[in-house]
Design a protein around this nucleic acid. Sequence first.
RNA 1: GCAGGGGUGGUCGAGUGGUUAAUGGCACCGGGCUGUAAACCCGGCGGGUUCACACCCUACGUAGGUUCGAAUCCUACCCCCUGCA
Length: 431
Amino acid sequence: MSDSREEGRAQAAGSSPRESRGAQAIALEIHAREGEARAGTLRTRRATIETPAFMPVGTLGTVKATRFEALEADELDARIILGNTYHLWLRPGAETIAAMGGLHRFIGWERALLTDSGGFQVWSLGALRKISEEGTEFRSHVDGSLRFLSPEISMEVQAALGSEIVMSFDECARGDASAEVARESMLLTARWMKRSRARFDELQREAMDTGRIDEREAHASSVMTPDSRLQTPDSKLSGAQALFGIVQGAAHLDLRRESLARTVEIGFDGYALGGLSVGEEKSVMYEVVAEIAPEMPAHSPRYLMGVGTPEDLVECVARGVDMFDCVLPTRNGRTGQAFTSRGKLNVKNAQWARDRGPLDERCACGVCRRHSRAYLRHLYQTGEMLASILLTHHNLFFFLDTMRRVRQAIRSGDFTRFRREFLEGVSSGVD
RNA sequence: GCAGGGGUGGUCGAGUGGUUAAUGGCACCGGGCUGUAAACCCGGCGGGUUCACACCCUACGUAGGUUCGAAUCCUACCCCCUGCA
């Protein structure tokens, strides 16, 4: 099995992704469809990812309150997690991570990584930044120093991180942005994407990507951590990083279509919908996804950035999305909210003080098998860090397990029913 | 026993004659979190009536007193702390 991996590497060695036609960085195979929903397998140089997939967020090189063992174990079995360019660039710095052999080696994670470009921070850091054609000037939230991030720098940092999937550097307009503002922002994103693409390709040619798997490591890792899910059996992959483009345009469908056309014209390994779930009405997000996702290239992964609630995931799978990431399971776990098959449960509430039941009667996770609501509430109330750990675990399980069930339902042609029952469940309320 | 200090709302602790139902912290109660400036943020928090505006009642150890007005001043008593015997 490691033979095929070495073969893939041999093919990739010394050739740029552009030169080697057919040798893609990632490959998506669709196995089943139901309506716009699709189930498939996305192969990357490190892990094979069943889609639709949820990707836990690990901004600073850690999925907060979670050990990597737990992410890998069958219960969660996360195949890919996120890292963030802006945050890792500030601390510990791209040079440090490159010196450590890239983000995988630095954090001890052998599966796939997707790195966000820092584009979202252009938006979320609001008052701390100034945008120009060249890039974005940030006031570091860590020490107040002035920092400059551009498409080129973002690509350089992401090469140093060595992620499997690199995101273009974009600008995210407010969800309620006017057509004028959204158009200007979308065009800036288009220009930044072109620059991202150019610099990314240079960096791949210059072998600046730290995430390449060398033969020694491939051998060592297959011996030390036998994990069939890391293998890419039919290895025709180039071994390079993949680059995703991002469709912007706020709530304006004409701008979204124009953005999609411009993005496809540049050409990427995958396509993302950005700038959603940033304050606009939920119906707007669903409409944009419903209109745009099906028009995105059918043979490439479609990634809805930053979304969402469990309902959002199911609803957007139904509209044609393959990949999601969101901080909700981890952040809300740390802030006392559990996601359950009957909707959200506020662990803080006094009504659970003597409740012997699990967070979710229908949940098979280790936390629900072992601990009561009363205990989890006690941990939260007393500020014990185990509260964060257990709630995060449960929430990640709920998200990842929901996606497993979504995939299963699509494959068995049962997604429509699954969707209806799931939505009924989460809106029924916890008691 | 003598001298000094002190007793404030669930709790710690401000306030030392007049918007004081009483600053603030904690606790408690509730809400929020969607490409993570987040183990965070916001709100409530004496009791009662009211949808609400509002109104009424009870509160600063206990009991009296001074004053138009007291948690704040005076007297007595109770209790706690420190020092000296």
